[in-house]
Amino acid sequence: MQERIFLNHINPVKDKIYRLALRLLTSRDAAEDATQEVILKLWSRKDKIKHYANVEAFAMTVTKNYCLDQLKLKQNSNLRIVHQNYESKQIPLQREIEVNDEMQWLGRIIDSLPEQQKLIFQLRDVEQYDYDEIAEITNMNHTAIRVALSRARKAIREKLIKKHNYGIK
């Protein structure tokens, strides 16, 4: 089998070989090495490849076997127990404390608003009611609701800006 024909068979499955190797070996370096080794193994069997009905399945089987052999032999010093590409979705403690502090500040600012503004802000921006529902609940017209909401947002914005700019000259 010529190199060009071989590459036409292998190139479409090269990424799949890498992803399977990465899943099994959990190291990018080890997966890249495994991909190269598997392609070399496939090249050494290039005359037999044309007899396989599904070259992709054969390549994946060779990949799986090679990776399992690597894991058994532990020859690869780049193997890791934990995935290197794992990213924790947990919020860091410092950030969680900052968010909680900010939410407490925001709660105090909202509590300091006049009752009408507080109610409308809660209904519109927190509970996500539309203006018709707020008008029905508060017995206010749309213009009055918009004005009260605008004033509430402005007061909140100004107090947050003042808090964050405190000490900055």
Score class of each variant (00 low, 15 high):
S27Y: 05
R28M: 06
D29R: 10
D29N: 12
A30M: 07
A31D: 00
E32S: 08
A34H: 07
Q36E: 02
E37K: 10
E37P: 02
E37Y: 03
V38F: 03
V38T: 06
L40W: 03
K41M: 10
S44T: 12
S44M: 11
S44Q: 10
R45G: 08
D47L: 05
K48C: 09
K48W: 05
K48Q: 13
K48I: 12
I49T: 06
I49V: 12
I49K: 03
K50G: 13
H51R: 14
Y52V: 15
A53M: 07
N54E: 11
E56Y: 02
A57I: 09
F58T: 13
F58I: 11
A59S: 14
A59C: 12
M60F: 09
M60Q: 07
T61G: 08
T61H: 06
T61A: 10
V62L: 04
V62S: 05
T63K: 08
K64I: 02
L68G: 02
Q70A: 07
Q70S: 04
Q70G: 02
L73P: 00
Q75H: 09
N76T: 08
N76M: 07
S77R: 15
N78T: 14
L79N: 04
R80L: 13
I81Y: 07
I81G: 05
H83F: 10
Q84G: 09
Q84N: 07
Y86P: 00
S88L: 04
K89L: 10
Q90N: 13
I91R: 08
P92V: 09
P92R: 10
P92F: 04
L93P: 11
L93Y: 13
Q94Y: 11
E96R: 15
E96P: 09
I97M: 14
I97T: 13
I97N: 11
E98Y: 06
E98I: 12
V99G: 02
N100K: 15
D101E: 14
D101R: 15
D101M: 14
D101L: 13
E102P: 00
M103C: 10
W105V: 09
R108N: 08
R108C: 01
I109Q: 01
I110Y: 01
I110H: 01
D111A: 05
D111W: 00
L113E: 01
L113K: 01
L113Y: 00
E115T: 08
E115P: 06
Q117H: 02
Q117V: 03
K118L: 04
K118H: 09
L119T: 10
L119W: 00
F121M: 00
Q122G: 04
Q122H: 06
Q122V: 00
L123W: 02
L123P: 04
E127P: 00
Q128Y: 07
Y129L: 13
Y129R: 14
